[in-house]
């Protein structure tokens, strides 16, 4: 089996999408693309369920008041990683909103919510009950830190597994 999956990194500005991807793959493109075109593509081969697959990661420039995400970048995605910054509560709402929009564009593809910057425990703003209630709705949620690398591999493995089983 030689599957290729398009995975979109989505989330608010400065939540750590680029850092997570950089932690996971060795970059070959310069970040210039990200600022000019608003997306940067990276790739990593993974083994999932005994098969090898290529994850083509689309690191899409964050959504803030000025820059909105190009929907065409999301089309054709087989999975999405929704990144939130645990030290900024509003970024989780943004991630959930982006999830909704993604679903409208590409249907119910596998999605994992990453609560990033888990190393910054002192400034953590997300409360556990809220997370638990989201999980009870059937959402996959993982804590990651692009700084320490904690949970990063697991996050990409989780989305790969999800797409492979889909």
């Amino acid at each position: 089996m030689t599957a290729r999956y398009k995975v979109c990194m989505l989330g608010a500005f400065a939540v750590g999408k680029t850092s997570l991807v950089r932690r996971y793959v060795h970059s070959i493109f310069s970040d210039k693309y990200l600022t000019t075109v608003g997306v940067k593509v990276e790739k990593r081969d993974v083994t999932v369920g005994g098969d090898t697959a290529s994850l083509v990661l689309w690191d899409i420039q964050g959504e803030d008041d000025l820059v909105s995400i190009r929907e065409s970048y999301i089309r054709g995605a087989h999975g999405v990683l929704l990144v939130a910054d645990g030290t900024r509560k509003e970024t989780l709402d943004k991630a959930l909103e982006l999830h909704e929009r993604t679903r409208k564009l590409v249907g119910p593809v596998p999605a994992v919510i990453l609560l990033n910057k888990s190393d910054l425990t002192a400034e953590w703003e997300l409360d556990d009950d809220h997370i638990a209630s989201l999980e009870s709705e059937g959402r996959a949620i993982l804590r990651t830190s692009a700084q320490t690398g904690a949970g990063v591999g697991e996050a990409f493995d989780a989305i790969a597994r999800g797409m492979h089983e889909a």
């Binding site: 290729r4 398009k6 070959i28 493109f29 693309y33 075109v37 608003g38 997306v39 593509v41 990276e42 790739k43 290529s54 083509v56 689309w58 190009r70 065409s72 970048y73």
Partner: peptide
Amino acid sequence: EDPDLVSAMLKALEDFASD
């Protein structure tokens, strides 16, 4: 070059240009 990356980047440029 890695075909996966070239393809994806081309597609991104294409989307960007068309938007």
